[in-house]
Amino acid sequence: MITVRISFEKKNEASYISLLDMQRVMQRVLKRSSLPVWHTLGFNPHIYMTFACPLSLGQESACECVDVKTEAEAPDFEQWKTALNAIMPAGIVVTKVAPVEMKADLIAYACFEIRYPAARKAALEAYNALESVPVEKKSKRKVKTVELKEFVPSLDLTEEGEQVRFSICLPASQELTLNPALLTAALEATFGVPAAEASILRTHFLTAEKTLFT
């Protein structure tokens, strides 16, 4: 049995599909495609699927992936890609289908590109002069204070027409996961830059050694 990784983009209106709904979408799409994916055994068999690092609602991504299994001996992965893209909902595009090379638990960092209106550049640059930016990370069990400057020491801004953008990499491991919304909320609280103006795109994952996760 081969474990297959389906890599895909999730953008525009698809960014508002929750993880639970995304699981339902993939179940339906894989069933409609008639691809030879493996189903779990038991009273209620369903397609085995594993998603890496759930994405927050409203955020876009160029590096989503879901792992499935197949008993096919020599699957044509280009045919898989074509078959899936033909029936994907708007905003979801399969970019690659291939055997799994790295397990998802090797992911240590998620990298993002964040864009704001260019008029916010001066306010965003003020972040760089701050010595400390403590934020509260809430979980089901507790609230933890995290020093954001430890992970985002500065914002390297680039102007592009009517927008300004910067890139950051945040922890995304079992030990610690930080959402870029913590940064946009801190920028709003400190400098009055509305978090709603931020466009967040997850671009890629890194391992603990800072190598590209594939």
Rank of each mutant, 00 (worst) to 15 (best):
I200M: 05
E125P: 08
A196P: 00
T40Y: 07
K142H: 05
K140N: 12
L124T: 04
E136F: 03
T95M: 10
E159G: 00
S33C: 07
V29N: 08
Q174E: 14
V25M: 08
L183T: 01
T70S: 15
E73I: 13
I87V: 14
A119E: 09
P134F: 00
V93C: 13
K121I: 15
F166E: 07
A119T: 14
S7H: 15
S173Y: 01
V25Q: 11
I200V: 11
S15I: 01
L41M: 04
E64V: 07
A83L: 10
A104M: 11
V135P: 08
S7Q: 14
D105N: 14
A110G: 13
V93T: 15
V29I: 13
A90K: 04
A123P: 09
F191N: 04
E136W: 01
S61N: 02
S7P: 01
A90P: 00
A14Y: 10
Q163S: 09
H39A: 02
T184I: 02
S34Y: 01
L84D: 08
T214Y: 15
Q163P: 00
Y116W: 10
A195K: 11
I17V: 14
A110K: 02
C65A: 12
S33W: 04
F112S: 07
I168R: 00
N44C: 06
K121C: 10
M49T: 03
L212E: 12
L183C: 03
A172D: 09
V94Y: 12
T184D: 05
V193I: 15
K10C: 05
E147I: 06
A196Y: 01
E188H: 06
L130Q: 09
I2N: 11
K96L: 11
I6F: 13
C111Q: 01
K140R: 15
M1C: 09
A83K: 11
T40R: 06
R5Y: 06
H204R: 13
D105W: 03
L182E: 09
T82I: 14
C169T: 05
V94C: 12
E13W: 10
R120L: 12
P54Q: 01
M22N: 08
M49R: 02
V66Q: 07
A196V: 00
C63I: 08
E175D: 14
P134S: 02
S18V: 11
H204Q: 11
L148I: 05
I17Q: 07
P117H: 11
K81Q: 14
E101M: 12
A198D: 03
C65T: 02
A185L: 02
A122M: 08
T211Q: 15
R165V: 12
T190L: 15
K138S: 08
I92T: 04
Q174V: 06
